[in-house]
């Protein structure tokens, strides 16, 4: 699989809420265009157009099963973004643990001064 899709393309593909919605459905399992039309209530050209944009960003995979083309979410391109926010969050969480410990030491000092 091609892992060198530009981050910009991933961002662009995700910028449209309709495409995020499609990706949500496709994260739950394989679906055909017909399935997606039924789930979303959108017309077929719109579904196909948004799918094409997701595919260009390598966010969906297609497999041919008999006469049907089935689409599925491919989420690997999102991994670096998730890691980045995760890192930031764990940094804060770690600091807040330390704040808790530090406030505890202040408390002890006060008691010792009594």
């Amino acid at each position: 699989m091609n892992e060198t899709v530009q981050p910009d393309r991933v961002f662009m593909a995700l910028a449209d809420p309709r495409r995020r919605q499609l990706l949500e459905w496709l994260a739950q399992g394989e679906m055909s265009v017909t399935d997606l039309v039924a789930r979303t209530g959108w017309n077929q050209p719109l579904v196909s157009k948004q799918l094409a944009a997701l595919k260009a960003a390598d966010l969906v995979m297609v497999s041919q099963v008999g006469r049907h083309r089935l689409y599925r979410a491919r989420l690997a391109p999102l991994q670096p973004l998730v890691s980045w926010i995760d890192q930031l969050e764990s940094r804060w969480q770690n600091q807040f643990d330390q704040l808790d410990a530090y406030l505890g030491t202040l408390d002890d000092k006060e008691k010792n001064n009594d």
Binding site: V10, L81, V82
Partner: peptide, 24 residues
């Protein structure tokens, strides 16, 4: 684009999106 990336990755659980994201 930044909003999309933020919503997609926030909280490590794709928190900004509504449904079906346990698998994700």
């Amino acid at each position: 684009e930044q909003v999309a990336a933020w919503e997609a990755s926030k909280g490590g659980a794709i928190g900004g999106w509504d449904t079906g994201f346990v698998q994700l």
